[in-house]
């Protein structure tokens, strides 16, 4: 390739290191602050903690129920995620591979769901879920999570299916496979990179979801994670237990970070291929 001057390499690294510090530093500061007392946090924000305040984490875990929120979130997110993937893949496959009346309309209908401001539908949505007797239930929240994950997932997977070669599918049909076999035995395995990336993408979205549970779950013992975090934040405006809030943020961020680092390749690959092929 072409020549890169030494100076240019150095300036490139400077910019990149600078941005890396900008990204990482606030998080390190957060972790570091979560070991301080409230007094230290406000009165000497830069000094290291005099003594490691493990108690902050204990308070976050027990008094603020971060542990319960983690468990609740998993109970909802795992089934919601699996169902989102299978339902979206079925719909996307049909939208990508079959020509039928209304196909375009349906595609744009699903697409439009990505653009509408969610909290506007909250009150009608609440009424609906209430009528279905699903308020304060995990299964109610699961169904709503699926519904609101469909637009992007279908948009993404439709693009993904379009990029898959048709030869294998055609030869399977020639071999006498019925459409269901074609989908589950041939297409789905071929689409697995897309499914994995959408799985991770939706996992993050559901994991961080705030507005939907805020309205649909009012029982504190069933709170989701972001909801619990915001609840703590608003509480701190009155109780000044900032250190426990920082500890809770740390508790939540560490698993996110681990999951992210483990799957970062899939996350990034998936998002890029899907985001580009809509």
């Amino acid at each position: 390739m072409y020549q890169v001057s030494r100076w240019s390499a150095v300036s490139t690294q400077t910019v990149l290191i600078g941005w890396a510090v900008t990204v990482i530093f606030p998080m390190i500061w957060m972790i570091y602050s979560s070991f301080k007392t409230d007094q230290e946090l406000f009165f000497s924000p830069w000094a290291p903690p005099v003594e490691l305040q493990w108690d902050n984490f204990a308070r976050a875990w027990t008094k603020a129920h971060v542990g319960d929120y983690l468990l609740n979130t998993l109970i909802v997110v795992v089934p919601a995620l699996l169902l989102t993937l299978i339902i979206s893949a079925m719909a996307a496959y049909v939208l990508a591979r079959f020509e039928f009346v209304g196909r375009r309309f349906l595609f744009y209908m699903f697409l439009s769901g990505m653009l509408f401001p969610v909290f506007l539908a909250l009150v009608p949505l609440f009424n609906l879920v209430n009528q279905l007797k699903m308020l304060n239930t995990f299964h109610g929240l699961i169904l709503v999570y699926i519904a609101y994950s469909l637009p992007f997932t279908i948009f993404f997977l439709t693009g993904f299916f379009k990029t898959l070669p048709t030869e294998i599918e055609e030869s399977a049909i020639m071999d006498g496979a019925n459409p269901y076999q074609v989908f589950f035995k041939v297409m789905l395995p071929m689409a697995s990179p897309g499914l994995i990336s959408m799985g991770i993408f939706n996992f993050l979205g559901m994991w961080n979801q705030y507005v939907l549970p805020l309205v649909l779950i009012s029982d504190e013992s069933k709170y989701m994670l972001s909801q619990g975090l915001a609840f703590m934040l608003f509480k701190q405006f009155y109780e000044n237990d900032w250190s426990a809030l920082f500890a809770a943020l740390t508790i939540i961020m560490v698993p996110t970070l681990i999951v992210y680092i483990t799957f970062q390749k899939q996350i990034q690959d998936g998002i890029t291929t899907g985001a580009l092929k809509g």
């Binding site: 009150v123 609440f126 009424n127 609840f231 608003f234 405006f237």
Partner: peptide
């Protein structure tokens, strides 16, 4: 609770409010 409005409005619309509240705060 905090943010009383966000938490209770849907219940009021649904005709299922709590019996008594403290309606204060942001």
């Amino acid at each position: 609770i905090q943010r009383v409005g966000e938490r209770l409005r849907p219940r009021i619309i649904a005709g299922n409010p709590p019996d008594v509240i403290d309606n204060s705060g942001a």
